[in-house]
Design a protein around this nucleic acid. Structure first.
Lengths: 336, 336
DNA sequence: TTGTAGGCGTTATCAG
DNA sequence: CTGATAACGCCTACAA
């Protein structure tokens, strides 16, 4: 059994109130007594029981973090950004994996509601989020990252998906490409619709007719990348492809290698996520670097300021984090 | 403010004791009262306060999970295995990132001690772990995964590092290789020493003299893989290399491509971790598949049985999970 | 400057 | 079959 504040008080020969106050520096304690108390704590190896403290203070110094896939590097980078920033401020993180399923997410929210959490950061799962109006009881602030939920308003930290896609398309177009494929994810996702918007904007600006059959929607999976690439290249005659996820790029490479389609001569590629392995494929892969870690950091900052009550303003804010395009051989052999 | 058990009791016109018992099915409740109570709970959207419950029951249905790097796929796979298995049993996970630093780990353990955790699963950080004798107070069972801690005994789930390395070496030797490099991690790690043991056993069995300069120890990083590969190939004249980490393999590929050293003709490679991208490098990479997810699952199972008290036996157990070698072109062009 | 005591929301031990 | 009530460990208003 761990020592409690009573044990400390007894040994130090003071009241529990005094012990509590010395621990929390919440009222004056004479030097003599402070010494006796700290000595007693030392002797017992006393650590305040955080559960009892949470119950009493009605706050836990803990925040919930929900991500759709704990095996996806992008999301764990977000998680790391969140964790590091929050730990700096004395908060712990309860991590949950929604498996991108609304049902799991909703279940976890119920648990969160019972844990006296101080806040919640989440990458919303696929689907409609108006259920959150009921599920969340306003006991703690919520911040969304990476995807914007449908049907629910809140602070939101995202990448500049529209602009990055727009920029990628401008580069392809400048290289002379006219049939450009966009290999992207589920159309329900805000990231997907934003990318499509950027894609269309760029093409229209150059009076290129948008061929909807070149906008391929699937899942962020290897198989989906394989299939959609086949369709875009074989049927769509695409000469350039932009991928919304690294997993899809891998599937695409598998297909292109099988078919002995040359990169970038026959088809030029730009992928998402500047993972280390994109440098050692042949040809090396051009990528849009996604600062996921920074997304997490920013989300944590915004949440902290909400917890601090600076959100007296009910106005929700949207934050966009800039991406960066890194050109390598898969875009053009001119690149190093 | 959330509804409490008192509110429910008042509305249902019963005592809090009765409400508690209907919730927990812990003593008989008449059908009539049960209905009134559930109706009241429904009406209030009542959810039991888990913090109060933890304090009262002295258990939290929560376990701690500490991993050395939350951005490393291997460890997050372990985490996912743990999370999925534990959630099936109604447990939540508090995840922490030790950043492979003993100081962070120790700090987090203090927090864990104050949270009424029901158990702890950890991949120990680099270093000496005898401090755990003091830091852990036996309030909850602990299970180690992937690495064995130095200086502390406990249940331990690991991969068969020695055997897998041994098998890899046998394959290289059968192919005629005599100068084989082992590119591995920090020598403090149990995984490293086990691999070295497997390496030596295989060579000695074939009366190949072990050249210590071919056993390269570094960190699981890109740069380390680059440097150690250079040394092994340039100075060590290695014709085959086995890598303990995928990151090191990427560094190695960068070096070999720069030098236009042919794989597998000049140097044959086998890497760890069957990541999807290893299939689309050229040549495709041979790998040792590490069932990290299963490690996590097993760890969770062992912990659950300890929590259930089946560990009346103080005897700690060691579990080994089998790996699988997948041969592709980097081993020999004969492979598909 | 320090102590007393009530209560956070549950559960469990008594009674009735 | 159900209800009071103490206790889990801590914090804080009030009292001294």
């Amino acid at each position: 059994m761990n020592a409690s504040i009573k044990d400390v008080a007894k040994i130090a020969g003071v009241s529990t109130a005094t012990v509590s106050h010395t621990i929390n520096n919440t009222r004056f304690v004479s030097e003599d007594i402070r010494k006796r108390v700290t000595a007693a704590m030392e002797q017992l190896g006393y650590q305040p029981n955080l559960v009892a403290r949470s119950l009493r203070r009605q706050e836990s110094k803990t925040i919930g973090l929900m991500i759709p896939d704990i095996s996806n590097f992008v999301y764990t980078r977000v998680a790391e950004g969140v964790e590091v920033k929050l730990r700096e401020h004395g908060y712990h993180v309860i991590l949950s994996n929604s498996h991108d399923k609304l049902s799991v997410e909703a279940e976890m929210i119920k648990v969160y509601n019972s844990l006296l959490l101080d806040g919640l950061i989440m990458i919303p799962a696929l689907g409609e989020h108006s259920y959150l109006h009921k599920a969340l009881r306003g006991n703690y602030p919520v911040v969304f990252v990476d995807r914007r939920p449908k049907g629910f308003e809140g602070d939101c930290i995202m990448l500049d998906n529209m602009k990055s896609t727009y920029d990628v398309m401008k580069m392809f177009i400048a290289k002379g490409h006219r049939r450009i494929g966009l290999i992207t994810g589920d159309p329900q996702l805000s990231t997907t619709s934003e990318r499509i918007q950027g894609y269309k904007n760029a093409l229209r600006e150059h009076t290129i007719v948008v061929d909807e059959s070149l906008i391929k929607k699937g899942s962020f999976s290897h198989g989906s990348g394989y299939d959609l690439t086949r369709d875009a290249v074989k049927e769509g005659k695409a000469t350039a492809l932009f991928f919304a996820s690294d997993m899809m790029t891998i599937g695409a490479l598998a297909f292109l290698q099988e078919q002995k389609i040359r990169i970038p001569q026959d088809v030029a590629l730009i992928s998402c996520n500047n993972f280390k392995w994109t440098e050692i494929t042949q040809p090396s892969l051009s990528v849009v670097e996604q600062p996921s870690y920074e997304e997490g950091q920013k989300a944590a900052e915004v949440l902290l300021s909400r917890i601090a009550g600076e959100g007296g303003e009910t106005q929700f804010k949207e934050y966009r984090i800039a991406t960066r395009i890194i050109l390598r051989q898969s875009f053009s052999m001119d690149e190093s």
